[in-house]
Write a protein that binds this DNA or RNA. Structure first.
Lengths: 193, 193, 193, 193
DNA sequence: AATGAATGAGTATTCATTCAT
DNA sequence: TATGAATGAATACTCATTCAT
């Protein structure tokens, strides 16, 4: 039941927002009563916190695994990270949207910790960029910090518009993004850097 | 007074969210009473609608101007659009965040219209990409639609983290983004496309 | 278990109040579950009722014993009653506070019966006063009814402030009260009644 | 309206208790809505706090006036205090009962301050006793502290049972109490201290 | 142009109680 | 004996909105 509630809440929070979804909405969708909700969760905030942690912990773990790989080239790592996050949309779109939108409703401590974990994600990407520069894979004059934020912008933003059932599958979109990030949009002979 | 209310509301909605900001909060910050608010706006939603339209109309207009330029190269147009939107953060950050986050609170009609206008922005960017491909400025195998969404992801996401008073100015960030979008991250000699 | 529950409940009701103490609080303090509580008591009210009866029945019995003594002088009986009730605080403070504060939560029948038993206590004290007047021990112009309520006020109120571990022991306090009740506060030669 | 709400709340809290009286009960009795209540009071606790302060401040002031009188004999002051508090029941019974019973529902700060003010009342009575001892009006071996608590027990307890419309008027009761406190219950010739 | 009193529908949360196992 | 899941009614409180002045 705890899992059922969480799953339905993720759907509703993701679709309509945390504030906009009442406990009533959640239990109604599950044909149980408010009492049941509060038997499993001590507050709406606790539920939200758990949703946040489950999503971010899983993400950090997967990205860590990619980033800490010892034999892979860095551009391959970058490709893997982008693919991971975009393809994640298929199963975790709502959770992602909740993370990107509802953090402010966390309690102070959880907020801080989630913020730190989000920063870890950014650091891993930055690390890949920096190492790639050192290894001569990436252009030397890249600002790793801002470029990472750009890359994360591309993938995070796709949680807002990418419909897994739509014209382009997450896999196709991920490939297009990867190509764009690696090579840019310009034709080489017109390169007027 | 109408402008004063709108300005303060943009600040509060941007900072704390639409649902999270009560009419009380707004009028209290302005040292007036609720009655005053309702003398100028017929509802909270009307205020939100107006904020949305003012921001998006202005944006569409500026982007239109860039896109419809007849002599500029397309890669220059792309640069201009990115610069416009990122530098916009200096003066319109809150409005931008409201647009990206609070659309769901609009009435049905306004929602549709705002969505159409947001789509127009996307179309202009797509148009620039497509024309650039035709003109041989951009790589031929780009998916203009997804690439545009990627570019918009980069710039829109920066509304979330870019602090105009921070280490990197919006101008610098815009330049880094432009460079990244045009050339990608790879070094050419290592290009293993 | 029944006794354990009752004992813990007396402590909690006495400390925090009947309404303020939830069944959850009680069973949590005992490391059992709500089901267990309802196995032993059919309702919170039943528990409260039992607490009331146990305390008042015991009190009435002890006071009856004092009052029905055939050889003791009445002023000695009065002394005994005051001592009994004040020294009771050592072991029964919580029960006493519950009786004085939570009667309204009893069911109608229990309420009536407890009220009758409390009245019996009052009657015994009144009886001692009246008999003492008849026997020439007490002043003839005393209003036995109001004086009794005064005496009960002194002792009952001490349940609110008398800390058995405090500066004055219940025994000392009882002696001071007895002296005060018997002789008043005035010096005789200054008596200006 | 603020006064109306307060007055009705005093009645209801005094009769049925703070916890037992819902905001619903209060506004229903006044034929207004919950919103109205919260227009005038920010919380139930604020209302309770105000009730406490109004009662205790008024009481402290009146007792201060009596205690600080320069020409009155101390036994007369004691008489005045008892009369004041008992006769108060006519107009302030509910407020008194609230003070004696519902303090625990105050916020921490208010609680502390009210406790201090209640202690002031006790100090004034103690002061009268002590001064009376020094002046040779009262018996020298009185424990002023415990005796004061006894006297306050008599008067405070009467808030629980004294019905202003009953057989004995507050004035009569006050006189009986005064007589009892000053002279005790024993006949002098039988005095076996 | 502005106020402030009043509303009523909605929100998160609590809690005594039930009951199948 | 004891558990733990589930209930549903009640509670304090919020808030957008109305309206007479």
């Amino acid at each position: 039941m705890r899992q059922t509630i969480k799953k339905e809440s993720i759907r509703l929070f993701g679709e309509n927002g945390f504030k906009e979804t009442s406990i009533q909405d959640i239990v109604q969708a599950l044909h149980v009563t408010k009492g049941t909700f509060y038997y499993y969760f001590s507050s709406k905030e606790e539920l939200l916190t758990e949703i946040h942690f489950e999503f971010i912990d899983n993400l950090v773990e997967q990205i860590d695994e990619i980033a800490s790989h010892t034999t892979k080239k860095n551009h391959q790592k970058l490709v893997d990270v982008v693919r991971l996050m975009v393809i994640n949309i298929k199963s975790e779109r709502s959770s992602g949207n909740i993370l990107f939108r509802e953090m402010r409703h966390l309690g102070e401590n959880s907020y801080t910790e989630i913020a730190r974990k989000r920063y870890e994600v950014r650091e891993r990407v930055e690390g890949i960029i920096e190492e790639g520069i050192r290894d001569g894979e990436f252009r030397a004059n890249l600002n790793s910090s801002i470029v990472s934020l750009g890359i994360l912008g591309i993938v995070n933003w796709s949680y807002q518009w990418l419909n897994p059932e739509g014209k382009f599958s997450p896999e196709e979109v991920a490939n297009i993004f990867v190509d764009m990030i690696l090579h840019g949009v310009l034709l080489q002979e017109e390169d007027n850097r």
